[in-house]
Simulated assay, not measured.
Amino acid sequence: MSSNRSGRPAFVRRLRIASALVLSVALASCQSMDLSRSDVRAGLIPPTKAPTLMVGAEAVAERTPASIVVDMDTGRVLQADDPDGLRHPASLTKLMTLYMLFEAIEAKRIGLDDAMPVTAYAAARAPSKLGLRPGDTIRVRDAMFGLAVKSANDVASVVAEALGGTDDAFALAMTRKARSLGMTRTNFANPSGLPDEAQISTARDMARLGYEIRKRFPQYASLYKTEGFDYGGRHYTATNKLLGRVAGVDGMKTGFVNASGFNLVASARRNGRGVIVVVLGGRTGRERDASVEALIDTYLGPAS
């Protein structure tokens, strides 16, 4: 049986493409929701069952920007432009990888100083990466910075294997978690955001994830505003270039693959108010950053 480089049988990928049209219609029928609702239902797939949502690339809007602004304190949607249109999240995916890691720490299934092994598979992930080698280990606390600041794909797979056994098994758990959070139009295929036609989300779902991760795990808020960290004798700077440049910005995560354009989930607080801003599909990083900055200024007022 033939396989692709990710180890998935070729017939599975053919099945994904063949089912794209039907599933895109099903997604289009989903109802949008206000993030402030507490009675959100699980969505397309009950959280007790293995998610099977897979959408072909043709069902995803190509480079058409989408955005949403959410009140950080109440979850109320303040602005939205195509918030439910399907996009590839790219490395915004790592927000969910971190959410799953935080849950595991909270449940004492893993500790901050525990060493996670690096497999040959994890070490072989495409950049961006820390350059981990097979047989190495990395502490959980260092992995957190590797994910949030450097957006390291090798670290994402290390975490996935430590918590779920394999990237694929962990991605299923990520999608179940997404459903439980009310992210009805999100499907994860890997823990990093590396290109995969089945890795899809929306601006609304990414805003919900940003909102939930800040609300449930406030003790890690400083992680997202870290502008740089040292590991293995090297210094790594944050991919989020708004940090330290735009007043009030205190996180969260950037993302880019060719199919997605430039994505950003940003949180900011000024003048006693806070927002989470999501922009997906910027043509350049500079254009994306300018759009996010303009939305922050609009809803929080000028920096004092």
Rank of each mutant, 00 (worst) to 15 (best):
V159L: 08
A189S: 15
A28M: 13
R109N: 15
R109C: 01
A42F: 14
G261E: 02
D154H: 10
E287H: 07
R141A: 12
N153A: 09
Y99H: 11
G131I: 10
L172S: 09
A203T: 05
N4V: 14
A221K: 08
A259I: 04
A171S: 14
D136W: 03
D154T: 10
S180G: 08
G135A: 07
F229N: 07
A42G: 04
L181M: 10
D84L: 10
P127I: 04
L280R: 05
R234N: 11
R87K: 13
L181R: 00
V278I: 12
A173W: 00
L53D: 03
D205S: 02
N258M: 10
R76W: 00
G146R: 08
L194M: 14
T298G: 00
R214H: 14
A120C: 06
S91P: 03
L147A: 01
S91A: 13
L78H: 08
V149Y: 03
R286I: 09
Y211N: 03
S67Y: 01
P127Y: 06
Y299P: 05
M183I: 10
G281V: 03
R185T: 02
S38C: 05
L101P: 03
I110M: 07
D250K: 05
V70W: 00
E103A: 05
G255N: 04
R87M: 13
